[in-house]
Design a protein around this nucleic acid. Structure first.
Lengths: 235, 235
DNA sequence: GGAAAGCAAGAGCACCGCTCTCGTTTGTTG
DNA sequence: CAACAAACGAGAGCGGTGCTCTTGCTTTCC
């Protein structure tokens, strides 16, 4: 991308600082009012500048949202990677799985609007640009590499593994192209299911669909995560 | 709620008709531009009336969205219930499960904006009123009653069932209060997991998180649904 | 028949994203 | 050092939004 070198001139330095200030203010507003109500004018007001001036730093509101999107993806991605690394016994796959899953949900609960921005309905006609892909991939890649470790450790899937027909193998070719390690078809399917379960659960919880059905989200989430760990043979 | 009786006077009839027309136009716009871009003024334009006049029928844009929310919930709920009933062999639990799951996804793919309205990020500060609960419950209740049938038929869960601690039993008391039948704790947990997996998968797919990873959504979804059926012992 | 309620329409308020212009500041180059 | 070009901030303005208020008209009901 553009010049990522350190700002030499005073102007470049001021630009970097103001860009950061806009992002911080936008991030604050995002956390308070949510993505849909994020207003460029309000950000400008917060910073004491004319709203038109902000357009020198972000070409549009969508561009600003994209920047926040990447920041948030990286934030949750880093939280998840750190949670994984925090488990000193690398062979404690179930422990790592639990740490990772609870890191995702912990971040989501602490930053519900950011989570909604990442995993909720996409904004109007806006399609996330390719630039977001690397940041967005951090969490799924962490999950996949964990199940790959389980395969290397010789753990067997405990949940029933259906035969994977050739069509399904083809359908999953994209993932194999994105990863450098090789997972068995059955384990890959199970991993994707766990991925969907994880985010499905968090979305259902955060978006209010478990209201009055599940009374204690923490407890139930723990049960779900443990069950997934058992399915994946991580225990 | 308000008078649900047939309109007697000409005025009441006109009111019912116009309410319907507003809903239809709004629904059309919802499908075209999505919930966030739905505009009261555009609806009024479409109907050739002043925007202020629509406020006699819906107190606010959120009220209009709520009405669309309920309609959509009922639509997908009915699609799911019909899919279940369409399986003549009531003992073919796996077939019913497949029909139900594919009905949910089929509706979602055909009505992505409506799906986003229901299961995506909630709109700004808006909380779905209690009036939406019955309609919203139709799909999960269908899923639950299906697994309940499996229990009555003596099917055994095939995926590993972790012991359900008392705290988790308490956490799930809300669901038991909403249903009249009794499912074992283990089966209830598995059902909730399947529920989360189902909607998690559809959300990940529709919201673009499987982009370039999964190449054939239909095939993969089928694999997921079949796997869930096996887990639940429906085969 | 007349009061009361329901109604459509228009003007208007405060806000939004975004663009354009204008005068100023900054950096570069001859 | 001077001159030019690029970047910048501020302001006005456009077309759009949700929503309210007032003003008349129509329908309903007593």
């Amino acid at each position: 991308m553009s010049s990522t070198s350190a700002p030499r001139t005073a102007r470049e330095l001021a630009r970097a600082e103001l860009t950061r200030a806009i992002l911080d203010s936008a991030r604050k507003q995002l956390a308070e009012v949510g993505p849909a109500a994020l207003s460029v004018r309000a950000v400008a007001r917060d910073l004491g500048m004319a709203s038109s001036a902000t357009y020198r730093y972000f070409r549009s509101r969508d561009d600003l949202l994209t920047a926040l999107l990447i920041e948030s993806y990286d934030e949750v991605g880093e939280a998840v990677e750190r949670a994984d690394c925090s488990v000193t016994d690398r062979d404690d796959l179930a422990g790592r799985w639990r740490a990772v899953c609870h890191a995702v949900r912990g971040w989501a609960v602490a930053n519900p609007h950011e989570y909604a921005l990442l995993y909720g309905s996409p904004v109007p006609g806006y399609a996330a640009p390719e630039a977001t892909v690397p940041a967005a991939s951090r969490v799924p890649l962490t999950l996949l590499s964990l199940t790959h470790d389980a395969q290397r450790a010789g753990r067997k899937l405990e949940a029933p593994a259906l035969p994977v027909p050739p069509a399904e193998v083809d359908a999953l070719a994209g993932i194999r192209a994105l990863t450098d390690f090789t997972i068995s078809d059955e384990r890959l399917v199970r991993s994707l299911i766990a991925w969907a379960t994880l985010f499905g659960h968090i979305s259902l919880e955060l978006f209010g669909h478990m209201h009055r059905g599940v009374l204690d989200y923490d407890t139930h989430f723990t049960q779900v995560v443990d069950t997934l760990a058992a399915d994946l043979g991580l225990v």
